[in-house]
Design a protein around this nucleic acid. Sequence first.
DNA 1: GATACTTTAGAGCATGAGGC
DNA 2: GCCTCATGCTCTAAAGTATC
Length: 301
Amino acid sequence: MNNLRRIDLNLLVTLDALLEEQNVTRTAERLHFSQPSISVHLGKLREIFDDPLLLPGPRGMQPTVRAAALRGPLRQALAALELAVVPQPDFNPQQDAHTWRVAASDYSESAILMPLMAALRRLAPATRMAVVEHTPHRLMQQTGQEGIELVFHTSDEGVQGLRRQVLFTERYVLAGRAGHPQLHQPLTPEQFCDLEQIIVSPNGGGFEGITDEILAARGLSRKVVLSVPHFLFMKAVLESSDLVAMLPARLARANPLLTLLPPPVDLPEFEMYMFWPERVHRDPAHRWLRAFIKERVSGFA
DNA sequence: GATACTTTAGAGCATGAGGC
DNA sequence: GCCTCATGCTCTAAAGTATC
């Protein structure tokens, strides 16, 4: 590595041309330098490689054994560098293969990923997506060492060093099964508190949430009889029992098995963000995915 | 010795760092 | 932002070297 610090990339370009031309003057013409400049380059290269590299011979300059051995690897290295500095082509979703790694909660899976998955497969058939569990307290680790490229998260508080974009603002609705005997008209807070309810407790086992805080401020309390860790489980229970729940609206939309009513208490809306690390910000495939998601989630708001 | 080619010396210019 | 200085690059001109 120490040797690399001494090498100007242009010196390697000169060496490559010298090894091909085996003539300082022709190398100079080819690289649009004066001949003495190439001679100076060769002098530096000789010092760096501790080898004469090219020696005057009967017909121009003859490469030394070391120089001849360098030729192949040097050509490959320069070709790789050239490829690396060429502007990246646009992502062609119909043809290009790519694997995206995404972290999502079960809410994000249902509200964001599931509705757009069919369109994603149709528009980008050669791509793959790995969805892993979203762990909010390990956001930086997930987008760092664990290689996650995109995270869906409901708050931007405490999130440092990641690019972000608001996807949508979410509201709550009161949900119960279709044909539920008490859900035929908007409920008062008191009527709401009389119903047996289910809540999602991501950390496990909790029976209180923001709804209970708001009810308590009005001197009310509700009957939470089931606490589950995932929204998908909650939906399944709602569809098959008389339990009701305050549910993010996007989880309940277009579901004929559920009845939806306005929330009996005012719950604050929340914003859904997508976060991504700087390393993928300009990546054509990643930019395409972000634009696709933003367009789709706006479309089914 | 003529020719072709390489190397060296010194000057000019551009750029970056540091100080004010 | 401006100035100074150091550094590095390329140039021209001239000298040195190898080949025929």
